[in-house]
Design a protein around this nucleic acid. Sequence first.
DNA 1: CTCGTTGCCGGGAACGTTTGCGTTGATGTA
DNA 2: TACATCAACGCAAACGTTCCCGGCAACGAG
Lengths: 343, 343
Amino acid sequence: MDNSQRIVTIKDIAQELKLSVSTVSRALRDSAEIKLETKMLVKEVAARLHYTPNPIALSLKEKRSKIIGVIVPEIANNFSSNTIAGIEDIAYKKGYHVLIFQSHEKYEREKENVQLLVSRRIDGLIISLANETQCYDHLTDTIDKNIPLVMFDRVCHSINAHKVITNDYFGAYNGVEHLIQQGYHNIALITLPLNLSITQNRLNGYKDAMKKYNLPVRDEWIIHSPIDVVCSEMTIRRILESDNRPDAIFISAERLNIICIKVIKEMGLRIPEDIAIAGFSDNPITPYLAPALTSVKQPTFNVGQKAAELIIELIENNNTTTQYRTIQLDTALDIQASSRRRQ
Amino acid sequence: MDNSQRIVTIKDIAQELKLSVSTVSRALRDSAEIKLETKMLVKEVAARLHYTPNPIALSLKEKRSKIIGVIVPEIANNFSSNTIAGIEDIAYKKGYHVLIFQSHEKYEREKENVQLLVSRRIDGLIISLANETQCYDHLTDTIDKNIPLVMFDRVCHSINAHKVITNDYFGAYNGVEHLIQQGYHNIALITLPLNLSITQNRLNGYKDAMKKYNLPVRDEWIIHSPIDVVCSEMTIRRILESDNRPDAIFISAERLNIICIKVIKEMGLRIPEDIAIAGFSDNPITPYLAPALTSVKQPTFNVGQKAAELIIELIENNNTTTQYRTIQLDTALDIQASSRRRQ
DNA sequence: CTCGTTGCCGGGAACGTTTGCGTTGATGTA
DNA sequence: TACATCAACGCAAACGTTCCCGGCAACGAG
């Protein structure tokens, strides 16, 4: 037996009141063509029957879905989940809903996700690029289809779109400068693959800080750690086992912090006596690590909010804009014991 | 000038080949009524024009959306983002997409979210209850509407639905027993408000462990911390400042760990010499905290996977099931220095 | 009295897709 | 020859909604 209540439509209201569907539709939208009395009757019945408009029918007709698509490399990390929360915050307030996909750092998966979202007729796309992505045709395609696009964090400068990033350059610059001022001069950099925009900016920040203090930038101390965890561990271990070990490491990605600390502890090295560290991290728990981790904090929630604001602005202005902007939000350096002054 | 490529439909293919839309539709779905030659022609043109079926039109007709709605209290925490990742993992493989909402622990917001998702014609709903929620009419409503429902983590036993939970009782029991065996006998419990299912189970685990070792269960040492952070700090501080301070705290919620550690450090107490702690946490960084935190680990990703499997099973069996199941996944105790044996 | 105006409402197409049923021409059978 | 059969395709309704295009009274102006 199927006791499921049928979902009530405009037609049901029309039947109940012996009106036409068009009249009911107009009454619900407060059209001037409908007299007050009828409007009130319609709204009364609509409320009584618990009528809710069917957004799918609307989407089909209006060719818009009130849905914003979001693609991130992984949901389950601090940066992503916080930006998603920021996106959802703004989207919800403006009547949009959020469809979330993961690229798992794979180009093919990212491309497939974009196509799926486009075929879902999303009103706009917010994306942070996968590590693997080098070709951007799937993005230019969506632009050609006149679907608004906003990139955040891992962006691509050759694409014409709004971008929301944090000041990765200064984040790294300040972090490295801090290490230098604390007396550490042999500073290694552990970072993600070079093709990511954030990697490049942070690398430049590192280099410029070193140069400003006339310290040599040594290629062998710039490690582009792969995405794979085991490989990451090995590369970090290798540099720590080398003859002329650095006296500090600047860690340019949240994910690498825990790996780095793990390796250092396994090797029996002390932080910061044997090796000082500082790194990008949005984990609020960094002050309670052993030792407390000096970290570059990014305004992750704000990044999401800003991206959502931009995409909604584009959507509601029919994707017309005079100029594409790159919004850059400031980072903050949280100084803790892991970079304590060298004796 | 609007140079946006129109999105190609079945009609475009039909026109190009001078066929009817129904023939094209059937050809694309490999109907036996269409001769091979026509099928190949149609598919060729479809590929050339980059045809992608419009799921919105399908949803309208078939009254299903291939979308699973998910409501969590907050996206931006370890438990939620990991379960969401698990849900997305399974959903993606089965051709479903995931629409995510946050209740922000508010009943009204949760209710509103449910209605929004229902009006979106989601095929199924996965939910973890808000802290505030005491009335479940919004859930029984969706059940009456024949929309499949799966609850996870914070469930409600009076609702007829599949549930996926972790073994909160034994998680707490084992954690507390561990503290006892390490020599701590005056153990306080800090936990969330009592109306949550997880709180009740963990509280029972705490009580039973204490009773097993003939230790008194003192009401003033069972603290139901409010959701608000400042209040949480105050309640924790109060118990630590009392004359007969406990010698250990079992922390029954991830969110409370960092608050607890913060207060303890601010008061100048040592862990575990002055007070030992152990708590629920899915943060992989717990071994690197100062001191390393003994923690109950939950299989968050698996919870999400299981919830998604169940909801899809319900969806594809037209929401018919012989019996509603409660799947309980095991927790694991990760023993670290914060509960080191008492001297 | 006639005609234009206005207020209120209904009919029906359209959005993209599927599907039951009808149609057509060709072939086979009695 | 007449009729059934069958392959291959077209027509049209339906999903829920909006909106253009009418229609039809009532009413005022001439």
